[in-house]
Amino acid sequence: MKALKNIGVLTSGGDSPGMNAAIRAVVRACKFNNVDCIGIYRGYQGLIEGDCIALDARSVKNVINRGGTFLKSARSKDFFSEEGRKKAFNKLQEHHIDALVAIGGDGTFAGASVFYEEHDFPIIGVPGTIDNDIRGTDFTIGYDTALNTVIEAIDKIRDTANSHNRLFLVEVMGRNAGDIALNAGIGAGAEEILIPEQDMGVNRLVESLKRSRKSGKTSSIVVVAEGDKIGKNIFELAEYIEGNFENYEVRVTVLGHIQRGGAPSCYDRVLASRLGIGAVDMLLAGEKNVMIGIQHKKLVSVPFAEAIAGTNEIDLDLLRVADITSI
């Protein structure tokens, strides 16, 4: 492999807190290794259009504490086509970029894998998504911050639930992964947690809530992952529950994109810094077509094919903790 002189960095897909910290780490790792760094705006779409800017150590000052991504992010339909990917490759050559760090989720890595297969271009992926749904890494950038955002919101909702004897259904993000719902539900003391990995069933949920009422609970919080399959949507579920309880008001809160925003937690800033530097180290060592992840506090490389093969399995111990603490 030829010596790398220019490394590009982009963020793609949904934004997550800590992406700026990861960009910062990539840029400063390049500077440390006497390699030029080029930022690419708007992910793969910006790459296709050649929307690039030279970055140095001072370009990324005061960004480690900012949420989102200053390089912007986008989902590119053009990159799905072979013609679009060819344009992207030509732009990389035009800007003399020798390798690429792609920060994002499974869609980002799927595109990177196809691009590598077609053009044999060195790419390292950095997992940045609040969903924590990437196989091969214990945590993704932004997940810890999103959890803390959800916890803070549910703590406030519980004040109102207790004041009015209400049942609140709180929908959290996570797509088809229940990590946010399960961990936030335990941390916030939820009475029930609904996740895609465990089909609780609406009848069992109602029976559980009835037991809670009989035990003396006058209000309840139910955390629902957005990918949960009970009912067509959370509002339909609320109507069903309300029809089975007298004098019990049911309210729905969809936290939505508030979970993606805000300053990254300390954990996410440190994780992003480690992964960003590790990505540059891997490229300089000749690795490509892999994601850098963290397992048992150690950095690891994971082939893209494995990283996008599916979500991590849910922690059964946490399910037991949730069941016991919700009595």
Rank of each mutant, 00 (worst) to 15 (best):
K91S: 13
N90W: 11
T69E: 14
E83R: 09
V27Y: 09
N20T: 08
S212N: 05
C266I: 11
T140Y: 14
K217N: 14
D138L: 11
R320M: 12
V27Q: 10
V321M: 09
V101I: 15
T108E: 11
K86V: 02
F32A: 14
E118Y: 15
E197G: 01
N34Y: 06
S208E: 14
I23E: 07
I151E: 05
R251C: 08
D36M: 13
K297Y: 10
Y116N: 13
Q45T: 06
E306T: 06
K217Y: 12
R42Y: 03
A161K: 00
G256E: 04
L209P: 07
S76A: 11
D78E: 13
Q45F: 07
K210W: 10
R204E: 09
L10W: 10
M282H: 12
D15E: 11
L237K: 02
R204W: 06
K86W: 06
I327W: 13
G8D: 07
T218S: 09
Y240R: 01
A188C: 03
N165W: 04
I38G: 08
K232W: 10
V126Q: 10
E171N: 03
K87T: 12
M200H: 12
K210I: 12
L167T: 07
P196K: 01
I23T: 05
L275Y: 04
G231Q: 00
P127S: 13
A188E: 01
A305W: 05
R269E: 00
I186T: 02
D56V: 11
A263Q: 12
N312I: 09
V254P: 00
H95M: 08
M200Y: 15
P196V: 03
E197F: 02
I123H: 04
A99Y: 01
I195R: 04
D78K: 08
G84Q: 12
T311M: 09
G142W: 06
F304K: 03
N6C: 05
D315S: 03
V202N: 01
L169Y: 01
A279H: 14
